[in-house]
Design a protein around this nucleic acid. Structure first.
Lengths: 243, 243
DNA sequence: CTTAGATTTTTGGCATGCCAAATACCAGAA
DNA sequence: TTCTGGTATTTGGCATGCCAAAAATCTAAG
């Protein structure tokens, strides 16, 4: 039986072949809980308090208005992501990354982004590459990034995500997004620092130029060195975040 | 209350401060199920049959002798890994990767491995680098890899994993291991192909030499190009796997 | 007041059962 | 025979309740 999953449709139905895919499966409580918890974890400043942040299944199920079952499934998913760790009979703790781990993640990010840069030089359209400049159109000699750090930081992240998207590589996009979620907590405190912001914008423009020039090796190198620079910066100046 | 989670220990206990962490929490059914299912999925040849492979919660719980609850949690974890996908009221399907996805994963792998090569040139010990040759000590002009494909394929994977481990970067190790698990199904059918095996060993030796020479850029390039070569090979010759 | 020991409470792990959606199956009409 | 409508079954989603381990609390001896 060649097509066991497809019931034979009536003739006038098969010919029209209307493009209906499937009705919205309206996400389950499990997925809703996963999204809600993930957002909550990312929003909280895990590194503010010295005590580990704990989660309670029953409290969460009450807060979200569902039973513990979907909560537990969501927790299992978050544990796979590395956001929480459940200690048997002890509790669920929100994972805190060490400086070394953050630096390590940024290095992996650099690797993935430099590969994205490679791919872009061979496949992306000129128009799309040039559009990357738009993220920084609000900044210039008359409006320095270091004077609008919060705003520039947002543009910065958006630029990097758009850059990687241009590679049209789902794997690179997904992996870097995951890494970014873990690094973001620190990123708020480091990427926007004035001393680094000053060099950031020219480096970004340099990456774009190399991409436009279809210079694969140079684009890769600039993308890599730029992000490795961030890693080195965090490694050198991120100490105060881990007191 | 500064330390609410820590009971005040008796003096003679606190002074010794013995390095006992915690007795083995003997993995839960959830984790056992996760490992068992993961191994089962990796072991089966998903690409052999044209019909999608389905899993059944109840059948699995019966097979493993536990209730559905830990099974469902394990399934949720596997879904995060991208090994299965549960379709709301339809079933749990083992995910089949397209050729494009596999190629994409191999490219990401190339990115991560080339970064590992970079790091190794600056941190690894000479002794450990040279030890990488041992994986291929059973092969040479008198015993060609293409004549012992199965054996060489194993050595090949072991070499790559050992290489990345030398970077001492947990993130790179974990990410590449995850990617390898997804690619492995294809790898059995492609990495061992004679036409590619012939060039594989010299390339590996070339990587090792660059690492020993502490030539960061060259090591990175050789590691990247080697794995990108595999990606290009799969893209060009892997068609028969997706009939 | 300190501390060892018993007791209560908390917390995650897990089994069980019901529900609704989707499917498979079946009988009757054309 | 073929198609249609309805029914039984399958399947994942979820709520509930009990259990044991660990922690917190209480109690009484010193």
């Amino acid at each position: 039986m060649p097509e066991p999953t497809q019931t034979k449709a009536s003739p006038n139905m098969a010919d029209t072949d209307i493009a209906i895919v499937r009705i919205a499966p309206e996400t389950s409580f499990k997925n809703k809980a996963y999204e809600a918890l993930k957002e909550a974890i990312l929003k909280m400043d895990i590194y503010a308090t010295p005590e580990p942040v704990m989660l309670d299944e029953r409290a969460l199920s009450e807060r979200l208005g569902v039973s513990r079952t979907p909560i537990r499934e969501a927790i299992a998913m978050l544990e796979q992501d590395g956001f929480v760790k459940t200690v048997p009979r002890r509790g669920i703790v929100v994972v805190r990354r060490t400086k070394a781990e953050i630096v390590d993640m940024i290095r992996a990010w650099a690797a993935l982004e430099s590969m994205a840069a490679r791919l872009i030089t061979t496949t992306a359209r000129k128009k799309d590459i040039s559009a990357l400049r738009d993220f920084f159109k609000d900044f210039g000699d008359d409006r320095l990034p270091q004077d609008h750090i919060e705003e520039y930081s947002k543009a910065n992240i958006a630029f990097h995500q758009a850059l990687i998207s241009l590679s049209e590589s789902p794997v690179l996009v997904d992996l870097t997004n995951d890494l970014l979620l873990h690094v973001r907590g620190y990123r708020q405190l480091t990427i926007g620092r004035k001393d680094r912001t000053a060099t950031s914008l020219p480096e970004h423009l340099g990456i774009i130029e190399a991409l436009e020039a279809r210079d694969t090796e140079l684009a890769e190198k600039r993308a890599r060195d730029h992000t490795l620079g961030l890693a080195a910066y965090v490694e050198a100046h991120g100490q105060e975040l881990f007191t």
